[in-house]
Structures are given as C-alpha cells and as structure tokens.
C-alpha cells in the first residue's frame, strides 16, 4: 500500500492537537485531576500512561487478525490489564517514590477510556506502525495536557516548582519565585483547584474556538457583502451604461 507523504507526521500530531484525548475529547479525566498536584508527578503519570498505551496499541494491532470480532473487548481488557500490572511492578521496583505518590491511579490506567478506546477504534483496524505512531501521539498529547494543568496548579499553589522528590535520580532543586510564597493560593493544591484549572483551560480553548468560528463567519459575511456590493456596482454601471446609450 502506498503511503501519502507526511501521513505519519499528521498521524502523530493529530493526537497532540486536533484529537487531544484530555483537552478535546475530555477522556481520562480522573488521573488528570488527581495526579497534577506537582509537575513531576504529572510527568511520571504521563510516561507510565504512554508506555501502557504504546504496548497495548502495538500488541492489539499485531493480533488484530487473530482475535475474532465478537470477543475483542475481553481480549483487549486482559491485554491492557497485563501491561498495567507490569508497569506497576516496574514502577514499584525502580521508582518507589513515584509508585507511592500515584498510588491507586497506576492501577486505574486499566479502566482509562483512552487506552481501551484507542485499541477499539484505531489499533484494531490499522497496521502496527500506524498504531505505534498513534499511541505515541496520544500519549505525548495526554502527557502535555497533564503538564499544562500541573504547571498552573503547582505554580499558583506553591509559588514555584520542586524537582527531585519523585525522580530521585535527579538532584533536589526547588525553583521558588522569590517573594511568591506570600502570595500562593493553596486551594490550587486541593481538589477544588484541580477542577478550577481544568475548567479554565477548557474555557480558554472554547474561547479561541469560538473566536475562530466568529472570524470565519465574519470573513464569509464580508465576502458576501463585497459580492453584493460588486453586483450592485455592476448593476449601476449597467444602468449608467444603458442611460448613457439612451
């Protein structure tokens, strides 16, 4: 099969922008609200999630001709649960701080709508390479969305960023804006802050979407007006022409 040029890139970028799983499709919201207290935890969650999504996408698309259509979902659930258990054990062994910070939310990747949804809607119909790219794009898009949320929550909630508490292999660094600790709003570290930040991000996105649509509508209207004016001018010119002839 011949591939269109730039299709891979398009496939990858689609997960980040147009079909961003968290910000556009509003899927996988539970870990997005629960693990975005700090930027580090969000990055850790994103990485674990991406690993699971990649593995399940690749395996599902490898087995797509073997698994009969009727029992697709049970097979996918077993596959995803296996990978989640593996990721959980690796996290427990090699990143114990991350494991204890995320807690039950690593297990909850099993029921994350995105993983099962991509397996059902994409990987079961496409080639291994395409599924891999799709999984990568979706995973990166999800991680980026988590990071955006965690960025605002940690910045406003604590007045800066700390690294090295969860990924212990990097040295402990605290980047606190001088003087900011007097102005931090600690509710952003609480559950309520998560809802506020998520709501505001969605509102900003809706605002730009609306404005884009309005601009488009305005352009169309302008074009129509112009066309009408042109037609009018033409008509007048014709009239004048006719008048002149008379």
């Amino acid at each position: 099969m011949k591939r269109e040029k730039g299709q891979t890139k398009k496939n990858f970028l689609k997960g980040i922008i147009q079909e961003n799983p968290l910000l556009v499709s509003i899927l996988g919201t539970c870990p997005a609200l629960a693990t975005t207290k700090s930027l580090e935890a969000a990055i850790g969650m994103g990485i674990l999630f991406t690993i699971v999504l990649l593995c399940s996408n690749v395996l599902v698309s490898l087995l797509r001709k073997l698994i009969p259509d009727e029992i697709r979902t049970p097979a996918y659930i077993v596959i995803i649960a296996t990978f989640v258990t593996m990721v959980k054990m690796f996290a427990n062994a090699f990143l114990p701080e991350l494991y204890s910070t995320l807690g039950v939310f690593i297990s909850l990747i099993v029921v994350n709508c995105i993983v099962l949804g991509r397996a059902e809607a994409y990987a079961s119909k496409n080639t291994v390479f395409d599924s891999f790219i799709d999984g990568l794009g979706m995973g990166v898009g999800y991680t980026m969305a988590l990071c955006i949320m965690a960025f605002f929550r940690e910045l406003i909630g604590t007045g800066g960023f700390t690294f090295g508490q969860i990924f212990t292999f990097i040295p402990y660094t605290a980047l606190i804006i001088p003087g900011a600790e007097n102005f931090k709003i600690s509710v952003f570290q609480n559950p309520a802050g998560a809802f506020i930040v998520f709501g505001l991000i969605l509102a900003v996105m809706a605002f730009y979407k609306n404005r884009k649509a309005e601009m488009k509508a305005w352009e169309i209207k302008q074009a129509k007006l112009k066309a009408a004016e042109d037609a009018k001018k033409k008509l007048e010119a014709q009239k004048a022409n006719v008048g002149g002839q008379q």
Binding site: I26, A192, F195, I196, G199, L202, A203, A206, F207
Partner: peptide, 23 residues
C-alpha cells in the same frame, strides 16, 4: 453564562465550588 464557559467549563467550576463546600 459567558459564551466561552457554556457547557463543560462552567460545570467544572461548579464542581470546584462543590468541592470547596465539602472541604
């Protein structure tokens, strides 16, 4: 509600206020 907040955003802000109440 403002146009940009229609639908989910305002619902999420409402949820935040409910969460503060339960806090």
């Amino acid at each position: 509600t403002p146009k940009a907040f229609k639908g989910l955003p305002i619902a999420l802000i409402t949820a935040a206020i409910m969460a503060i109440a339960l806090m």
